[in-house]
Write a protein that binds this DNA or RNA. Sequence first.
RNA 1: GCGCCCGUAGCUCAGUGGAUAGAGCAGCUGCCUUCUAAGCAGCCGGUCGCAGGUUCGAUUCCUGCCGGGCGCGCCA
Length: 703
Amino acid sequence: MGLIETQVAAELAEWPGFKSHGLGAEKIRENLVRPPKDDMGDLAFATFKAAKEAGKSPAQLALELVAGRDTARISKRLRKIEDPDDTADEPVAPPRSALVVAVGTAGPYVNIRLNRAAAGALLLTEIEKQGEAYGNSESGKGKTLVIDLSSPNIAKPLAVHHLRSTMIGYSIKKIRESQGWRVVGVNHLGDWGTGFGKLIAGLKRIPSVAALAAKKAKEQLTEGNFEVLPEFTVKELNAEYQKFNEAMKSDPELEASGKREFALLEQAIVAENTKPGSAVGTPGYENFYIYRSAREKSLSEFARVYKDLGISFKPLSIVAAQRSKEEQQLKSGTFPATGVYIGESHWAVVGARCQPIVDTALKTGVAEKSDGAVVIWVNGKKPGKDGKPPPPVILQKDDGASSYHLRDIASATYRHEGLGGTDLAYVVGSEQSLHFQQLFKALEMLGYEWAKNCTHVDFGLMLFKNDKGGWEKTSTRRGTAIMLEDLLDEAIKSVREIMAAKNPELAGTPDGEAVAHAVGVGAVVFNDLKAGRRNNVKFDWDAVLDFEGESGPYMLYQYVRMGSVMQAFSKRYCEQEPGLPDEASAKAGAQATGIALDDVAKAALHGDAALLTLDEEWRILKLLAEFPDAVAKASDEYEPSVVAQHLIKLAGATSTWWVATRDSRIVGDDKALSLARVRLVNAIRTTLGKGLTLLGMSLVDRM
RNA sequence: GCGCCCGUAGCUCAGUGGAUAGAGCAGCUGCCUUCUAAGCAGCCGGUCGCAGGUUCGAUUCCUGCCGGGCGCGCCA
C-alpha cells in the first residue's frame, strides 16, 4: 500500500500526540503494520520501538498518541490498563484529515481506519493512470541483469523439469524489466563436451549415417546441406546415446572411441573457425556434420515447445561482424527474441577468452597446477576431517581441455563486458549450488569486483512418484521422464474437454482453440510458479490437471469474469446513455473479445469510488494497493511466486465479491453504483492481467 | 564425514521478530430463473520436527540434535 501508507504517515505526523512524541512521517511509516484481521483496522502503528525510546510502556504510548487534546479521556484509558478485563477501547475522534478517519488503540497498537472513499479514489485514479504499467517502478534504472535461463542439453528432448528454469527465468526477466531493469536472457545451451563424442561414435555405428556423413564431409558446410540425420528425432538421438552408453559398460574401447571422436570434432571446428574450408574432407569434418545436424534438429524441436510457452531464442552468430550487431541489439533491447542462445561450444570454439584466463590466473598465482590440471583452491587446501581438501575449481583438465568451470568463467566475463551486465543471475537447479558457489568465488579471486552481483537463482528438483509411492528424480533411462510437450498437450486437451461442457459455443471454434491453448499452458505455468522456487516439485498429473482452486485457469477465470462484467455494462448502459461512449455498444456485441473494453474502461473513469462501500470491495482495493509491493519483492528476491501468491488473494477476493453481489449484480439497476463497480472491475482486470503477464502467461477474454 | 536446501493441517503449500498461524486439495453441509458454479459460504482439521538460547515478545533470529533432499577434482 505504498501510496496510501505514505499519505497516512504524513497525516499522522500532524497529530498532536505524534508531534509531541517527536514521531515524524518517516518513523511512522517504518512502523506501520497490517492488522491480522480486517475488522481490527486497515493499518496499525506499532508502538514497540517508539515506546522503548520514550521509556514508556507500549500500551500507554499508544493511548497518548491517539489522545489529541482530550486529557480526561487519556487518564480514563490509562486506568483501563490497570484493569486488563476492561478492554473496551472506544475510538477517539481524530482531527479531520483526508485518509485517516478513525483511530483506536488495542494494547500496543494504534489501529487506523481509513476513509474508504478517499483511499479508493486515490488508488483507482493511480491504476487508471498507469494502466498496464501499474506495479512498475524505476528502481532498476540504469542497471542490466543478464539472466541465464532454460539451458537444455542438445540431443536430449525437453522434459518437464526444463519448465522450471525456463519459466522461472522468463518470469524473473519480465518482473525485473517492470522494475526498470534492462534484462538480457541467455540460453546457455549444453552443446559441448565428451558426451557428444560418444553420441557421434554411437551414430557412426549406423552404416547409413556414417556413409552420409562421409559423403557430406567432402563439401563445404552451408546452411542448407548439413542434414545427415533426417530420419532421427531428438528422442531417437537420445536413444542412440543411451544405447552407446550401455554398450560402453562391457567394451572399454568404445569409451576411448568417444573421446577420439570428440577430439576430432574439436579440431575440425577450430580449423574451420581459423580458416573456413580447411577441415573439409577430414574425418573430423564428418563429425562436424553430424554434430551440427543434431544441434539444428534439437533447436528446431526446442523452438516448437518454446513457442507453446510464448517465448523464443535465437543463436548468437559465430561470425564476428554479425555477432557485434546482435550484441548491440541485445544491449538496446531490440533483439528479436526472448533471449539469445550462447551455447557452451561458443566458449570452447569462438572464445578467445578461455586461454588468457588460465594464463593470467597462473601468472598471478590465483591458480596452480595440481595433478596435471590447472586449479583454483577457492575454499582453501586444508584437508577436512575426511582427510580431503574442499574441491577446487578446475580450469583446465590434465589433457589441456577446458573445463565447464572455465567456460562459465569466460561466459561470465562476456556477460559483464560484452553484454553490459551489472548483475548476473543463473536460473539453475539447486543441485548445482556447489558449482555456482565455486564459480562466484573463483570470479572474485580472479579480481572481478562484479562477482558480488552474481546470484544463483536455485530451484528445487522435479520429483516423480515411483512404484512404491515414494518420490524420486526423473530418469530418462527408466522412462519416467515426461516430455514437456506431452505435458502441455495433455493440459490443453483437458481444457478442451472442460470447455466443451462449460462453454459449448466457444469450444471447437478457432477462437476456442486459442483459448484452450492459453488456458492449458497457463495451467502448467501457474502450477510451476505458484510455490516458492526452492521447493521440490512433486509432479502429479492429477494436481497439474486440476483446474479448480489455486490454479492458472482459476486466475484466468476471474480475469474473464471482469471482462464479462464490462461487456454487460456496455450492453446495458453505454448504448443508452448519451454521457457514455455509445460506440462501445456496437463493438461489444456477441463477437467482442475485449475490443470494446477500452471504451468501457473510459466510461468507468466516471465512477464514484465513494459508492464502493462493501467490505468485499474494500478488501479488493487494499489488495490492489499492495500489488506494486508484491512485484518489487518478487524482483528483489528473484521469486515469481510472490506475485503468484498475491494474485491468488486478489482473485479469491474478487470471486467472493462476485458472489456477494449476486442479488444486486455488479451491473444492476442502479446506474451510478454499477458505474462505480465497473470502475473497480476495470482496476482488477488491469492488475490481474498485469500480474499474470509478469508470470509469463497469456490472457484470454473468454473461456 | 563435510557443505547447501528443506521440515507449518491427512496431502500440496503460503506466512511473519509481535495481536486469535492462513489458503487450496481431500472429507462433510449448503448455494445456480440473473454479468460463466473452472465459482461461493460453512464445518472438520495444528505441540509451526525436537531441545536449549537471544528478546518485553520466537513458528520467524542463533546453537545443538532428529528426519528428508541434493552435492562433494578433472561429466556438464
